Structures are given as C-alpha cells and as structure tokens.
Simulated scan of single mutants.
Amino acid sequence: MGLSHGRGAGVIALSLGEAEALARKAARGTGRSWGMAEEFGRAVRWLEGAGCPAMALGAELLARTDGLAHAPVQGADGGLVHPGTDPLCPIALGAALSDLRSAVGAGRIGPVLAPLLVVPHLAHLAGTGARAWCLTWPETEVWVTPGGAVLSMTGARLIDPLAPMVTWATGTAPKGAPLARRDRAHCPLGVFDQLNQLAARTYAPETEARRRSGAGETTPGRD
C-alpha cells in the first residue's frame, strides 16, 4: 500500500483504490456480506473522490453498526418502507434505491445513519438515466447531475452521523459546473488505524504450522 502523509500531521493520503479496498475489508470485518462490503467500499471511494471525509464517516458508521445493519424493505406500493424503528444503514438504503432503478421517483424514509453515504447510489441512478437527483435531510441538500457528478453539496449537517429523515427526488438541478473530482483520499491517522483493526478480523489466525514454516500472519501497516 503506497501511503503518504498530506494535509498536515496526522493525515494519510491514499489512492482511491486503496481507500476502497481498506473500506471494503473493514466492512467485511464487521460482518457485512460480500455484496454490502463491495457497495460500502465503492461509496467511500466515490465520496472521497468528491472531496468528502467518507473514510471517517464510514469508520463511524461501521463502529456504530458493528455486526448489525438494518435495511429498508419494499412496500406494497413498490416504494421503500422502514421495517422497524432502528436507524437504517445508508449503504443498504442506497443499494435498495439502485435495485429499484426506474421505479424510484421520489420518497422519504428515516431515521438513516450517515446519509451522505447514500449519495453515490443516487449518482449511479442519475448516471444511468437522464434526470438530476436531489437528496435532502435537515438543513442539508445534495444534487447530482444526469451524468452522475456532484453539482452541489450545501448545508450545515453534511457529515451528520444520523438523520431523522431523508428525502430523495428528481428535479431541475441548480445551474453551475459539477464539482471537480480528486484522485486521492485523505484519512486521519486514527481512522486509518480503526479501519485496519476492523479489517484484521478477516485475516486467518496464525497457526503453529505457519509459524514453523516462517509464514507469519500479515496485517496492513504503514510503509
């Protein structure tokens, strides 16, 4: 893993691919299925490329939902409904929206953990169609273009760990150029260590036979 320090002390710069791989392994370490872990890694990569602190937000989400992530279900009318009262996992919500595709026009559901992590899925929907999408939660609004790029992110609660309600809809996006994409992720050192600790749960334990052969357990670290 080619790591470098950037943006001041205590911050590690990773390629977007490295950020995605670490996020995916950490998600597997908290018991996510392979499919949900893949979705989590892609969401973190996409948001970091948009300049958002997705690794920190994702680490907080994994810690909060360790071993348990609630997903929405499809209601009788074809929309998404909350199966209970516990906060929904944003990755599960985003994946459900992506699965419904053209059947999704507008909706609302809550509470939802780390709602910013839903945005990459709406961007995917926008990129496969011809409509701009907007995701809102209290005091916050995010627009993605028909091409799947971020047009605007506004509001004081962009990286809130919990929203009581989120709303998604298509509409006429505000005018302006999409936000520039970045090719590096920037992760606080503590978050990097936290994600590595979760990822380490997926590693096979070292056995006596492996120790005798000189093949010790490998864990990620700083180069």
Rank of each mutant, 00 (worst) to 15 (best):
A63F: 03
P87E: 03
A63W: 10
L100C: 06
L100D: 01
D66W: 06
L80I: 07
L100E: 06
S98M: 09
G79K: 06
A76D: 10
S98T: 09
L68Y: 04
L61S: 03
P111D: 01
L88Y: 03
D86T: 14
R108Q: 10
C89P: 00
D99G: 08
D86K: 15
V73S: 10
E60K: 15
L88C: 04
D77T: 05
T85V: 06
A95M: 11
A63E: 07
C89K: 02
D99F: 11
S102P: 00
A92F: 02
D77K: 11
D99H: 14
R108W: 00
G84T: 09
L88Q: 01
D77M: 02
S102W: 06
A92C: 08
L62K: 05
T85H: 13
L61Y: 07
P83D: 14
G84R: 12
L62W: 01
P87Y: 09
L88S: 10
I91C: 00
A71E: 14
A63C: 05
D66Y: 13
R101D: 14
A106C: 06
P83N: 13
G75N: 04
L97N: 01
L62I: 09
H82L: 14
D66S: 13
R101M: 08
G110H: 12
L97C: 00
R101V: 02
S102N: 06
A71F: 12
R108Y: 00
V112R: 12
I91Y: 01
R101K: 15
L80P: 01
P111M: 01
L80F: 02
R101W: 11
A95G: 12
G75L: 02
D77N: 14
P90K: 08
A63G: 15
H82E: 09
P87H: 04
R64W: 03
D77C: 10
Q74F: 04
G110N: 12
I91P: 01
H82W: 15
G107S: 06
P72K: 11
I109K: 14
G79D: 08
C89A: 00
T85L: 14
V112E: 12
A106H: 05
G110A: 15
L88N: 02
D77E: 13
D77I: 04
T65P: 00
A103E: 11
G79W: 04
P72V: 05
G67S: 08
A63N: 07
A69M: 05
G75Q: 08
A71M: 11
A103Q: 14
L93W: 06
A76P: 09
G79M: 05
G78A: 12
V81S: 14
P90Y: 08
A76L: 14
G107C: 03
C89I: 01
I109Q: 10
A96P: 09
G94L: 05
V104Y: 02
S102C: 02
H70D: 15
L62C: 04
G75T: 08
P111K: 03
L93F: 09
P72W: 05
V81A: 14
S102Y: 00
R101H: 10
V81K: 12
V112K: 11
S102V: 04
G75H: 07
V104L: 14
R108N: 04
A71G: 13
G78F: 13
G78R: 07
P83Q: 12
